[in-house]
Amino acid sequence: MINDKQLGRQASTPPSPRQAQKPASATVRVIHRLFGNQRELTTNLSLLSMSLPGIILLFIFAYLPMLGIVIAFKDYRFNLGILGSEWVGLENFRFLFGTDAAFRITRNTLLMNVLFISTTTACALVVAILMNEAYRSRMSKYYQTMLFFPYFISWVIVSYFVFAFLNGQTGLINRWIDALELDRIAWYRSPQYWPAILVFANLWNGIGFSSIIYLAGILGISPELFEAAKIDGAGKLQQIRFITLPMLYPMIIILTLLAIGRIFHADFGLFFFLPRDNPLLYSTTDVIDTFVYRSLVELGEISMAAAAGFYQSFVGFLLVVGANWVVRRVNEDYALY
């Protein structure tokens, strides 16, 4: 009991973004939340002013550049400028859809991101719950750091790790295979293995970050709920199933919705460097971002790159709106807005 109380105190310190503590606040629409009423504004003035730098940066880097979308519809020439360049309609979008690669890159991007989102969410939840159980342990900080660390390693460097494991001549894995007297696998010419390799690498990279977000969510759950469940005789698994997971649903859904918004954007570093831009692996590793890079790197055509970016963002936007609509149909409380 004492320990649980300590836990409760600790739990109140990390900022937990959206919690189930105030289920009512989740239902308030975004607009209402942004502006609030007069009293809310005065009470929250200091908090609002603290968020101002962030809002300004967001405006500068996320909203102002949106004007640049016009480039996607123009034949952009440096000396003519954005306004002076000629309008060309949808001409710049043509290269994306002109070949049957369009289907493949769209499929790969979507499928790989679906795999990433589902595996990361599932594994991060498991890790977060495990870390929560070990939260009082002396080693917990160590575990967290260990899991978080890969998040800071550049994909370029990771690609060398992967190469050291997988390369045909001196790769570690092929040496193990030799030791087991099995047939070597030519990883870099076998596209069928790469979805699994990429999912593993993405998980290795991202799990620390996601699990810490979920851990913060779990720590935000009122300890009284667990205490009450314990008194009623609920075991650990039952507590997880009936308290932890339901309380985390809003958070899981919001994070997933946000991830769906980026589902048309593949992580360029991951998909470009790990397969080493190897043509034999394109069938499973080529995504929109790498395709666009490869198509335009020689040409240096800003308009066509802008068209590809616009296409990705536009579809991502539709998907977020659609997914949110579905969520709202199921349970309005969980929707993003």
Partner: peptide, 27 residues
């Protein structure tokens, strides 16, 4: 003058890298 054919250049360049390079490299 790449201007009239830039869409085709982008398209063929992706195909070239995918299908011709493995032949060119002897794979």
């Amino acid at each position: 003058d790449r201007e009239p054919i830039k869409t085709e250049i982008a398209q063929t360049s992706a195909v070239y890298n995918e299908l011709v390079l493995p032949i060119q490299y002897g794979w």
